[in-house]
Design a protein around this nucleic acid. Structure first.
Lengths: 121, 121
DNA sequence: AAAATACCTCTACATTTGTAGAATTAAAAT
DNA sequence: ATTTTAATTCTACAAATGTAGAGGTATTTT
């Protein structure tokens, strides 16, 4: 199962907040904020899809993510890579290194990261 | 404008083939193949959205992509990065380096690529 | 030429998505 | 206790998506 674009956005807020009531979620939306019921609908759908859980406080709910961002994103990225790069991560990697607009500093940082990864293998 | 998931898949076939008639496109689908009309509908929608063009040969069309895979994908990836990494490419990069399952060899290759990129800056 | 093939457009329809009003309920504030 | 606030569920509806039948035309095959 997958989240839709708007659901993903909301999920992302939830990942940041970790735990949140409706109010908190509405707050992070920029103007013009969606209607409360809109967010409520989304949360309901996301709950049905198994991505969100909650604890009751009176009749209100404190929502929290049921999937880790990392996991969700990994799967996602793999889908992308599968679709666009014949399922080849390294093909994607080289695309990324070339086409992305990282600064020299960021690239150097990335290289260091990769070096560390290499040592751990 | 954006392509839907299924449209993307078809687009990807088109990128691979570069130029293709219906027949060619149907061929690349694994069993169970979709109905011809299904693919036709998709192609029509994609044409309307401006992602696909064609040349007439009799009443048949030879379709071709109007956007480069690279460009399409870049935009796409940026969307992802925006959604999940606070719009920070380098944050994504480090996620990628850590979470991806590249082999030592692939990582080394990637590092070399990055080195080259650094030199070009 | 007749038949078969390929492929197009139109139409259709169920699902999913984006958005939100109406009605309701529980908790908080006065 | 009454009003206000926050949040929920139900219902609704337009647009987008996935899928494909029906019907028509051009091209190729026999």
């Amino acid at each position: 199962m997958k989240l839709s674009k708007t659901e993903e956005e909301l999920m992302n807020h939830l990942w940041k907040l970790n735990k949140a009531f409706m109010k908190d979620l509405l707050e992070v939306y920029p103007e013009p904020k969606p209607a409360t019921t809109t967010v409520a609908t989304l949360l309901k759908r996301m709950t049905d899809k198994g991505f969100v859980g909650y604890n009751l406080f009176g009749n209100a709910r404190q929502y929290y993510p049921l999937v880790k961002k990392k996991d969700y994103f990994s799967k996602h990225l793999n889908g992308l890579i599968k679709t666009f790069f014949n399922d080849s991560t390294s093909q994607f990697a080289s695309f990324f290194a070339k086409e992305t607009d990282l600064s020299k500093e960021e690239l150097e940082e990335l290289r260091n990261l990769i070096d560390t990864e290499i040592k751990n293998k």
